[in-house]
Nucleic acid binder design. Structure first.
Lengths: 137, 137
DNA sequence: CTGAATCCCTGCCGATACTG
DNA sequence: CAGTATCGGCAGGGATTCAG
């Protein structure tokens, strides 16, 4: 997809991808959603935003996440350029998962997702207290 | 899920939802992803960010989107509090779809998604030209 | 410890047809 | 014009098992 729209200040005002009429892989929004696609994916990224992790540390942090899905997610995030695997030599096998610089930049994206959801849930709870804001990265 | 992590300035520094260990519906990030969930959803929102639309205007703007999926998306976005239906009396039936104030605030979210994807695709094309930035809302 | 392979089941989405 | 009803294919993801 693509998302250029009405009145606005800066930016590339006429990126052709802002006018795609179907969910194509070239649209930046699709690229990002594709990287974050799948259940558990954002939680894995959150965990790695907090620091590098081993496979078993990720399992411990997300106990309900199965091995299959965890390796699927790590492989997918690897292909997306978000996560890097550092295989340390020796025995037993030690592997560290870390975010690439690109992956690190997902922090503001998750932050934006958090902020909107927090605002909605605050509104749904009825109270109109001060605006919420968490910090992901 | 939830996404509070390492160093950061403002915000609710200890929202318990930042530490959920499974994809629960209470996590703000999940709330947002749930609202945007499904193919074509972001494109429908983009179209409505540009202004209110009738059903057939949406179909015309997104020709490859089937009736079934379009009404699914509009219903889902309605339940999510993003879209409102204004049924105008008379014949033939005239219905306008508009974003709620909450829906309007998805603009920055889509912008964040756009920015990350644009940066990635720029990097993938190899050139390191100036940073891209589109404007959604 | 770090995964990959398999199986099965569910839910999404696309196409087609039909209604108020 | 603005949708709903129905069906089928396929991919996502959970549990289990096996391998380096």
């Amino acid at each position: 997809m693509t998302h250029r729209t009405v009145g606005h200040p800066a930016g590339l005002p006429d990126d052709p991808r802002a006018n795609v009429t179907a969910p194509t892989p070239e649209c930046p929004v699709e690229i990002t959603l594709s990287a974050l696609h799948g259940r558990w994916t954002t939680l894995v990224v959150r965990e790695l935003l907090r620091g590098d992790r081993s496979y078993s540390e990720l399992r411990a942090a997300l106990p309900m996440l199965s091995d299959k899905v965890l390796s699927d997610r790590l492989a997918h995030l690897g292909e997306a350029g978000v996560v890097e695997r550092d295989r340390r030599p020796g025995w037993p096998p030690r592997v560290r998962y870390t975010l690439t610089p690109t992956g690190h930049r997902l922090g503001p994206v998750l932050q934006a997702l958090w902020d909107w959801g927090a605002e909605v849930s605050a509104r749904d709870r009825g109270a109109e207290s001060g605006p919420e804001t968490g910090t992901v990265h």
